[in-house]
Design a protein around this nucleic acid. Structure first.
Lengths: 265, 265
DNA sequence: GGAGAAATTTGACCCCTGTCAAGTATCTAT
DNA sequence: ATAGATACTTGACAGGGGTCAAATTTCTCC
């Protein structure tokens, strides 16, 4: 079991908690795309976000460069080749990060959840597109200002650096998956990763896993087609390893068996 | 042509120079694995390495935590699941970074060259194996000490952070390649990346590219088999796009055509 | 320089996954 | 609640790349 957990923590999604993924609508925000200054005080993802290394006073200062906003499911947050002006931090909801080839083939390089951030590139253009999968609450910081604040709050810079290295580790696992695993192994790995993530927050949840993204998203994340994903879900169901309740709720009936299949399917 | 160059700079190898890759034997070191303190003064990769942000005095101080050593081709530098005690910096030669599944399937996550570093994980074990492809000269720093020195030399920390983010960008491109490109596109992309890298240092080299790694390494990097790699080399040769001089020297006869094939093969 | 080992190439065959198509279920918006 | 759109599933078929095998070339080391 230990090996299994270790394997999971490497997969290509940031290893920070997410708060389940029922579409959430912001109560405080009546309209989309309408930034306002956040006090950060009531932020539900504060304890798992990059800012969790700041104490109350520091956070008060830091929050001055932060702007809150909200996006509905399917809206674009930032696009490939657009000026990389902001760093984005997810407060709630699910986001997909993707890249495209000129003919439209898409690769999703990661799914991000509450506590994850994105947009901190070295280049002055974003090298990927970020889109809301569910409704999301996000805060963002001008890139130049957050880099300045790394000097004011060195712990913040270290925290962001740590998260970046953890993310790099995850991408290496995802490269192993994309280059060397077959369809069944890919889906098992994915389901266990989602299970591990959801388990971190919802401890009482048992083996029920919420899958906010579409089959098509999963396909583009695992380097497969929608049809193959669908067939593999059916396959795992016939093997008695999972139950499905609609397309977005999966019950893992034998995580040990799934774990075995994730490396030798 | 601009788009082409831009595409290249994203591919999953660190975008720092390498000094060609003819196997090099250290003159100063008679034996392998025999660390000694380096003065850094005569280091040929100093201008492209992480330490290039340090001035002469700073480098003198920094060099105290550095140890030089040498490995022959095919030797292991560090292994998956081994204590991650050191950060390694490549002074010359070529290194492959890889991960394995329990049944032996291997994924090479990157090829590294002079100026590149590796080993800076968040975890206390290395999450990958590093092996010398050619003979290599390497210097290494105890992880705890280099992290301390980030406080003494903030520019060094920023430099390492920058290189890490650039590397993360590259892995995203490699994920797109692994998940969505076909065999021909993968090989064309790879050849152009190697060409771009070699061109940075050896400007007079024209379109002759040195490929230090084996067909098997290329296969494990691109998520293919040796046979497929070999067939695609033959294929590109028959198309008149490349000439081969042995297995490790490739002459790119039409980089524009290769560039087109790299996205729509 | 020559023998053995290792790496690369080539061929024959086949399977996994993609493609195309159609049917079914689910979601969304009135 | 209902209609239309979207998402998902299932089936038939095919092809790109894998597997196995053998030939050829290149490398390594006395």
């Amino acid at each position: 079991m230990y090996v299994f957990i270790q394997g999971l923590s490497k997969l290509s999604m940031s290893p920070y908690r997410f708060s389940g993924s029922k579409p959430e609508t912001s109560i405080r925000l009546a309209t989309n795309n309408c930034p306002y200054n956040s006090a950060c005080d009531g932020c539900s993802s504060r304890h798992i976000s990059l800012c969790n290394v700041l104490d109350t006073d520091e956070l008060k200062s830091f929050s001055k460069i932060s702007t809150d906003f909200h996006k509905n499911a399917k809206q674009v947050i930032c696009s490939e080749d657009e000026d990389a002006e902001y760093i984005y931090n997810i407060r709630s909801g699910s986001v997909r990060i993707s890249k495209m080839l000129s003919d439209g083939r898409r690769q999703i390089t990661g799914f991000l959840f509450a506590g994850d951030f994105f947009g901190l590139s070295c280049k002055d253009k974003y090298s990927y597109t970020a889109e809301a999968i569910t409704n999301v609450e996000i805060c963002r910081f001008p890139r130049t200002k957050i880099i300045e604040s790394f000097r004011e709050f060195p712990a913040l810079g270290e925290r962001v650096f740590d998260m970046t290295r953890t993310e790099l580790d995850s991408t290496h696992d995802q490269m192993l998956l994309l280059g060397r695993k077959n369809a069944k192994e890919k889906l098992c790995t994915f389901l266990l990763t989602m299970w591990e993530k959801s388990g971190r927050l919802n401890e009482g949840n048992g083996d029920e896993v919420d899958i906010p993204m579409s089959r098509s998203d999963i396909a583009d994340f695992l380097g497969l087609t929608v049809e193959t994903i669908s067939r593999q879900f059916t396959n795992l169901h016939k093997l008695g390893l999972i139950d499905l309740d609609g397309a977005h709720k999966v019950f893992l009936k034998d995580t040990d068996a799934l774990s075995a299949l994730a490396e030798n399917g």
